[in-house]
Amino acid sequence: MTTQQANTKQIWHWLELVPDPEIPVISVVDLGIIRDVEWKGDVLEIIITPTYSGCPAMAVIAADIRAELVKQGVNKLSLKTQIAPAWTTDWLSDKGRARLEEYGIAPPRQAGTPQHCPLCKSTSVEKISQFGSTPCKALWRCTSCLEPFDYFKCI
């Protein structure tokens, strides 16, 4: 077959269409786990850096990426896991951070605490637990509106 290879800019655009399975408002690109996209001959190589060592979503993410690219006509794919440099929340895109907040998840901050409640924006917040519904989140509570909320841990 002699179909023309999609350029990598186009591939990155397609990857933007793949949502994080546990936080569907952000894409795998926003999450910062796609480190490189490169054609090796007629095989498209994608380098993925996992968020947490044991994150069960990684297998789903790999399957979702494969499904999207096959749909776009890229059939020869090689997904590679790279652990170094280690994933950091610094790699979350600004768009991703804004989407998290809109979705009700406080984005990570260097200070290690949420800036404010993602729902009512009050700065009166307190930690309930260091771990939340997924490995990447902690559980916090707003003492103004009393709603609990997830905080994306800063690592």
């Binding site: 060592s53 044991g54 637990s129 260091q130 771990f131 939340g132 519904s133 490995p135 559980l139």
Partner: peptide, 20 residues
């Protein structure tokens, strides 16, 4: 419940490290 989640997440990290 919070402790249950925290323990399960800790275990998950440890088993992920085991794979490496």
């Amino acid at each position: 419940l919070e402790e249950d989640i925290a323990l399960a997440n800790t275990a998950l990290d440890l088993i992920g490290q085991t794979q490496m």
